[in-house]
Computed example of a mutant assay.
Amino acid sequence: MYEPKDNNIYYPPLPQEPPVTTGIPIQMAGMPSLQVQSQQKVSWSTGLCGCCDDVGNCCITCWCPCITFGQIAEIVDRGSTSCGVSGAIYLLLMLTIGCNCVYSCFYRKKMRSQYSLSSSPCNDCLVHCCCESCALCQEYRELKQHGFDMNIGWQANMENRGQGQAVLPPNVQGGMIR
């Protein structure tokens, strides 16, 4: 290293060779440690059996779950699939193989990921297989709680909010930080 000639001038040390990449995390001298914070899971705004909060939607979901599922899927997919297409796929699966819950449980998982929701009362596929109507009603109410008008679809919700862009889930600090 170079010795400073003048006490008022600081000469930073020369950069060191970076260590060989091994895939094992290490702490380099002089580098701040990066701590990945775990994403805090929040509870659902209503319970699985909270159908009394929205009796109209509960009735529609009991008699024609493909409508409720289509509305949920359009919002969760942020408009990339329409309500009609998602509802038709759901109905087709329900009428042909009777296993529509497998399709809808993936949307519950995607929605939980977007809004950092806990997996309660149990895992997504089990909730949909055992209580499909209640699960769809809960997801519908949750999206309404997040400010969506479920009857107008994704595009109209974005226009009403004065944005032309997607509504992002809450910003949670974590991952790679500079």
Rank of each mutant, 00 (worst) to 15 (best):
Q165S: 12
P65Y: 02
L92Q: 08
P121G: 11
E142W: 03
Y90C: 05
E132F: 14
P169F: 05
W44Y: 13
N100H: 15
P12T: 03
P121L: 06
P25T: 08
E159T: 06
T81A: 13
G50L: 05
Q35Y: 14
K41L: 15
C49Y: 14
W63I: 03
Q27P: 00
C131W: 05
R161I: 01
M176W: 13
T21Q: 05
S120M: 10
S133I: 07
C105E: 10
P4W: 02
E132H: 11
M158D: 04
N7M: 09
P121E: 08
Q165Y: 02
P15D: 04
C51S: 07
M94H: 14
S113Y: 01
I89T: 15
E3Q: 09
H128Q: 09
G56K: 13
I9F: 04
G56Q: 14
Q40E: 15
Y107E: 09
P4H: 12
Q114T: 00
P65T: 00
V102K: 09
E139A: 11
Y11R: 04
C52T: 08
L95G: 00
R108W: 02
L126M: 10
P12I: 02
Y103F: 15
C137E: 03
C101K: 07
M31L: 07
Q155S: 13
V36L: 15
D54M: 11
A29G: 02
K109T: 14
S86N: 12
T81F: 12
P170E: 09
V127N: 09
A88Y: 01
G164C: 01
L95C: 11
F106L: 13
N100C: 14
C99D: 10
C52N: 07
T61R: 00
G162S: 01
P170L: 08
N7D: 13
P13L: 04
C49T: 15
P25F: 12
H146C: 03
P4F: 06
G174T: 11
C125Q: 01
S113E: 08
P25M: 08
C83K: 15
T46A: 08
F148N: 04
W44K: 11
Q39M: 14
N151E: 07
P121K: 07
R108P: 02
L143W: 02
L95I: 06
V42T: 14
